[in-house]
Each structure stands twice: as C-alpha cells, then as structure tokens.
Amino acid sequence: MSLIKLLEIEKNYPDGLGEFKALKKVSVSIDSGEFIAITGPSGSGKSTLLTILGVLNPPSKGQIYIDDIDVYSLSGDRQADFRQTYIGFVFQDLHLVPYLTALENVLLPLAISLYPGKEQKKMAKEVLNRVGLGDKYHRLPGKLSGGEKSRVAIARAIVNKPRIILADEPTGSLDSGTGNEIMKLFQSLNNEGITVILVTHNNENKKYVKKNFLVRDGLIEVNQKWV
C-alpha cells in the first residue's frame, strides 16, 4: 500500500520575469518501508522534491497524500504536527545546533511534545544509544567527529519515531568508511520498517537502496534498481 502519493506535482520558482519549472507534473507513489535514492544532476529538482515530501515546501500545483492525508491542505500548525509525527529530517550540513549537546540536539523535537522531561531524556538517550553514541550524550557538536555528528542528526530525526526519514546528501561530507557506516544505519532503520528517502550523488550508496528516482529536468524516472 502506498504511504506517499504525489499527484501531478509542479513546482515553479520565479526566475527573472518568468518562472523556472523545478518539477513538472510529477506523479509517483512510495510504499511503506521502501528505501529510495533520489539522484540526478545538480539543479534537477532533487532537493525541491525532498522538501515537498517533507511538508516544508508547498507545490505550485498537484497534491501529495501521505498516509492518505492531503498534507498541504492542512493548516500550518497541523503541518508542523504532521512533520513532528511522520517525518525525520537529516540534512547534508546536519544543521545541529552548535551550542546544544548531542543529547540536547536530540531532545529538540521533543521540546514541544507532551512527554514529561524524564521521558524525553529517556527517549533521547535510547536513540543515541541506538546510533552508537551512548557515551557522548553531553558532547557539543564541535567535539564530535563527522560521522558522530551525522549519527546525532539521525538520532534527532528518529527520536519521534517517524514513519519516514528524509535525508539530503547524508554522506556528502563524510569519508567513504564513515559514509558506509551511516548508510548501514539507514539500512537498519529501514529494516525496522521506516521508509527512507535520501538525495545522494554517491554511487557507493547503490548497494543500500531498493529503488531509485532519477530526477532530470523536473521529471522523475522511477527505476526499480539504481543503475
């Protein structure tokens, strides 16, 4: 059953006096538990697609259903609730808050939750343990290696137990070995049933993903195998 359905999605950006069409009538479905790599040349619309999937960037036309919910018809507050419940983000630059410790960074999504403080900490520690940072709760991002920072970002993305993880070039700034470790982490999360969608240029990630969306000139070519 499709978890995500994109129906004739268009995204236009103003470009001088005209418009630049980043996505042109894109229609795809993503099933629950898939592991998808969005690839394509720079400026092809990969990140746009990811932000649209992340309920951060409304399309110019078309509809997106996630779990049968027309997400962009929701109010701003409901969209925020939706993101908190359904989606975990991992950015290429990770965007960790530099003055918050690893634990506090992971606690961020819980700061507005109804969980009591102790429960929040328990959940955050659990996911940090899960990503292998059980001994670095109180390290600031500046004191962590690149791979560890990525793990914190992943921990922050999964602390709310989302059904979808969206990652933008998660291994882009990592060496090959660390990149593989991170991809394995995504793979293990995917094995637990989480749908993982990542934008990547890294061919080494081929072995982890189950499906490839090749974005080119605003159109998507769905490949069952990344070739």
Partner: peptide, 16 residues
C-alpha cells in the same frame, strides 16, 4: 535563521 529553520523542520509551529 538556521536554528529557527531546524526547529520548524523538527515540528515546531510558528507559535512555538
């Protein structure tokens, strides 16, 4: 701006 953007992404509402 980046901090606020992160917070928005992780589910903070405008009012939060």
């Amino acid at each position: 701006e980046k901090d606020f953007a992160i917070l928005r992404v992780v589910g903070f509402k405008k009012k939060d």
